[in-house]
Design a binder for these strands. Structure first.
Lengths: 339, 339
DNA sequence: ATGAAAGCGCTAACAT
DNA sequence: ATGTTAGCGCTTTCAT
């Protein structure tokens, strides 16, 4: 009981009694076709359930496929989902379809996925680089005219276009906000590994704010946590230390959730908090959480615009676009230090 | 300054001084090859940055592409991201790559995306059906041997395999939990449109629990809200009604977030809440939120297993797998009614 | 161990 | 308005 072969253009042509090229003309609307054959062809297509084989078409036409590839490190993070939405709506207007894959934080899988996309001749490739991944292998495809855009973090081993948030400025602003409120001991809860681009940049912004206010940089106030649970534990520990912080800058949404969880577990509502990344529940908590909001949709849009410009022949040198963040004061960052 | 043509198998062959077929043999490791040529070929591949054109390969080989397509209605919902993760890890073991696209709740775009996947000859197609979409056009591909699996909701116009949560049982259990706590006026906050499969099933489970306890079904306690904001407003309104509920069953995560937001705005911490779908912040709120947790990763795994079995020749009739939900009492569902 | 020819499904270029 | 031929890049089949 073998499956029937997939219907081809020839099957349709035979059914109607015309040549394959005529069917092709009808379907792609290029050459002239009589209304009569057009109808007959469409009927046969419907009847046989014909799906044109785009691989064959693309191969003959020679151009790239009408898809854009996106590689993200983690499907569960809605941040990337929103980024993807921004790309999607921008490329769709050009008749391109966004296809995405997740590498689950694995550099080997990132490599495999990019080969998958390259081998299928996507029009452009967008990558949110995973820690440890190298991107030198993309050079050939890029030289052959395929745009490569790095999102959220710069790529490694390849100079290409990129789009990032104003991580440093945003973190500086968030920290300064706490300092203005009177805080002098401010903890930083960041992602791991500490070499992660966004973490480095945000830590740098945090330090800039401290320096500007002539506050000391205390390493014991810099905490790690890749997951919510880890961040929560780190926060609980530091709140029990001899000189606990009176305020916390959480450097991403998982860190922020963990920080809130840690504070709840300790029954501490008196610690000020500013979170980098907006949170779905930011407005629901008491106090509501002050955030340094990123604009993931704008990041996606900017990346798509760069890629489309490249496809249109833009040959200027690689550039990096910075999408601004915005401080949204909501309450948690306005708590004064105890005195 | 035109882009250089993409390197082909022949380019590599010419560089080495062998035939194309020899290069093909080296790359796919089928026929016998001498170690010497093997090395030279690999070197040339590296030097020229050769990426085999999978479209050409697949076309000649005739089989399906080594990708699996997934269509989801919304990128921003982490529920679907987790489902995708479950599929991904299951199909990867078979050398298949998961590619996903979002139709943004638009049935036309769902159709376009499925054509995109079909035209590229994916090995299998997974669809989370969007409201208003029809799936009859998938019949031909399915007949030709491509597995189709519907996730989270049944498809329309096509009998195919499916995987869903135990929506009705879960909602009944969640509602019964509130009834056991002494509540007699329990509101239902659901998604829109009211015809949505998951909403219908969950409402049915809610009604079953009411009936089992001989409680009246009061339509004024059934609220709608497709977004967090809409749900919040509906909740605020009902709390001001003459006979307000003392407990709420939120039928999905957006409804739950909106419900919490509405309660916070009204300063009401005395209303019991059970949420269908687990929430990232469920444990952080006070009281922590009692949920009827789904298992999205298990949904994805089950769907992948069905598809793989079909690819292995399973020709039994279409079946629907139900993945159980689990009640997680955390506090918000244990609030007693005021007396 | 390697090469030559044919063909996968489609369309560009040239007929008619 | 339609048909024919050739070929996209690769692999199969059959040589050598």
């Amino acid at each position: 009981m073998a499956s029937p072969r997939r219907t081809t253009l020839h099957d349709v042509a035979q059914e109607v009694g015309v040549s394959a090229k005529t069917v092709s003309r009808v379907l792609n609307g290029d050459g002239p076709t009589s209304p009569a054959t057009r109808e007959k062809v469409m009927a046969a297509v419907e009847k046989l359930g014909f799906q044109p084989n785009l691989m064959a078409r693309n191969m003959r036409v020679g151009g790239p496929d009408s898809t854009v590839g996106l590689i993200i490190p983690d499907m569960g993070n809605p941040f990337f989902g929103t980024v993807a939405g921004g790309i999607e709506s921008a490329v769709r207007q050009r008749g391109l379809t966004l296809l995405m894959g997740s590498c689950a934080d694995d550099p080997d899988r990132e490599r495999a996925l990019s080969n998958t996309f390259l081998a299928r001749r996507v029009s452009a490739l967008m990558v949110v680089p995973t820690v440890g991944a190298d991107h030198a292998h993309l050079r050939a495809a890029r030289t052959a005219g395929m745009p490569v855009v790095f999102l959220d973090r710069p790529g490694t081993g390849l100079t290409a276009d990129g789009v990032v948030s104003s991580n440093r400025d945003g973190a500086r602003e968030g920290t300064a906000h706490l300092i203005t409120g009177g805080h002098r001991r401010i903890a930083f809860v960041g992602d791991r590994p500490a070499t992660l681009y966004t973490r480095r940049e945000r830590l740098a912004g945090y330090r800039e704010a401290l320096e500007a206010a002539h506050l000391p940089y205390d390493r014991s106030l810099v905490l790690d946590g890749h997951t919510e649970a880890e961040a929560a534990e780190a926060v609980q520990r530091v709140l029990h230390s001899p000189q606990p912080p009176t305020a916390i800058l959480a450097a991403n949404n998982f860190a922020a959730m963990g920080t809130v969880l840690g504070m709840v577990r300790e029954g501490r509502r008196d610690v000020a908090l500013v979170s980098f990344d907006d949170l779905p529940f930011a407005e629901v908590l008491e106090p509501a959480i002050t955030t340094v909001a990123q604009d993931p949709a704008a990041i996606g849009r900017a990346a798509a615009e760069i890629a489309l410009a490249r496809l249109d022949g833009d040959r200027t040198r690689a550039r990096t676009v910075t999408v601004p963040t915005r401080l949204i004061p909501r309450g948690s960052g306005e708590l004064p230090p105890p005195r």
